[in-house]
Nucleic acid binder design. Structure first.
Lengths: 220, 220
DNA sequence: ACGTTACCTTACAATTCTGTAAGGAAGAAC
DNA sequence: GTTCTTCCTTACAGAATTGTAAGGTAACGT
């Protein structure tokens, strides 16, 4: 995931960026408010999450946020603010921030909040892995540009796996997430997996089994 | 908006509930953890936002949260927790909470956070008409609380109609939006409509035909 | 190596979905 | 009214999906 960190304290910025990189994200940092505003004032800035300090040189964080929300209501923004500045936080949330963190904060907490925001964002984005795409608006899969018509059970299975791209999903979880409220035969999921694999053959997407942990989609 | 406040301190609960009611929300309160878990462990609890104290009698707030997320990944949950219990907050966020507030907190801040969560929720609102609901996360329909399993063609037809709730959708549009890239028989859509109607019979949702303009969902 | 467990594959019958066609009903236009 | 058009309903055969069972394979622990 691509994160943009806007923070004028260079030391803090580097520390945070490192922590987030360890979590597997690509992090860009900016020190200057005006620059940030410029970069965020067109819709395709390409970021998945903005971390924004409110106290910036040249242009306050609130202004940056306002500029961001003017052209992009979707990308989540997490505000970093000095403890006690409640007013600012309230203003920030009402301006369209999704969350804030009061300095000083525990790094664990930062990570947890970033995870929470990215998880939520992942819910609405159209899911993609390799040439396999799930358009959440049209409710349809495409594979290599072609529509992929799946029976309901396989569709739910695949959608669930795509929602958890990168991590293996075990059968119990699949049963409760993808087939909630439906009766499932003994080895039903294994059979669905098998049938899905047949459809995904000759594509760049493979349904790996992670023994003991579940199934996982990977693009080769 | 309907809020559920789960907080064992009766005095605090009433204060908060009053504040939120002043903002125009309908607030229900619960004191007991076990009761809360029970009420939230089926998907159609009907709440728009859960405010959850972690320190509850009989059943911890984290358990309540886990039970909620088991059957409903959608409804935002805001955790209320004692200041300093960072561990709990991190756990809560990773369990699927959307936000937390450390006690004691300013009422302004509570209001701002509730607004932020409800605003966000409105963005990815699930489609609803009468008791018919389309959960865009789970990719599933429910009708009167029951899952409604539809064949792919009927599912696309219904999803398309729900996306245009209120306006009639004509056959050409249905063909291109719901069945893009698929060959359609002469009167195929009429047949699908007929089959869908059979399934929606005995519900509060009707599929009206607006002669010359298309089909339209209405809740009676 | 052995047994155990988890997972794979296959096959088949039962069910459900799909396309097509044909005839009927209802509204609009004349 | 009549005619035309649009939409409804029904039925049926072909196709696809689903549940189930049975036997196979591969990884794992001891």
């Amino acid at each position: 995931m691509k994160l943009l960190l806007i923070e004028d304290d260079a030391l803090l910025a580097e520390t945070l960026a490192d922590v987030l990189r360890l979590e597997g994200h690509r992090v860009t940092t900016l020190q200057d408010g005006r620059e940030a505003r410029q970069q965020l004032s067109h819709a395709d800035h390409g970021q998945d999450l903005i971390l924004l300090d409110l106290n910036l040189p040249h242009c306050s964080g609130l202004e940056v946020l306002a500029a961001l929300r003017q052209c992009d209501a979707k990308t989540p923004a997490l505000i970093l603010t000095a403890r006690g500045a409640i007013e600012d936080r309230v203003k920030g949330l009402d301006l369209g921030a999704d969350d804030y963190l009061a300095k000083p904060f525990a790094l664990d907490e930062l990570e947890a909040r970033v995870r929470a925001l990215l998880r939520r964002q992942a819910r609405d984005a159209s899911l993609q892995i390799g040439t396999l795409n799930f358009d959440s608006l049209a409710q349809r899969f495409t594979l290599g540009g072609e529509y992929l018509n799946l029976p309901p059970r396989e569709q739910r299975l695949l959608a669930c796996l795509m929602r958890h791209t990168g991590e293996p999903v075990d059968k119990v979880r699949l049963a409760s997430e993808a087939f909630a409220g439906e009766s499932l035969g003994d080895n039903a999921i294994e059979v669905y997996v098998h049938r899905l694999r047949r459809r995904l053959a000759n594509s760049d997407v493979t349904l790996h089994t992670v023994r003991g942990l579940g199934y996982q989609l990977v693009s080769s």
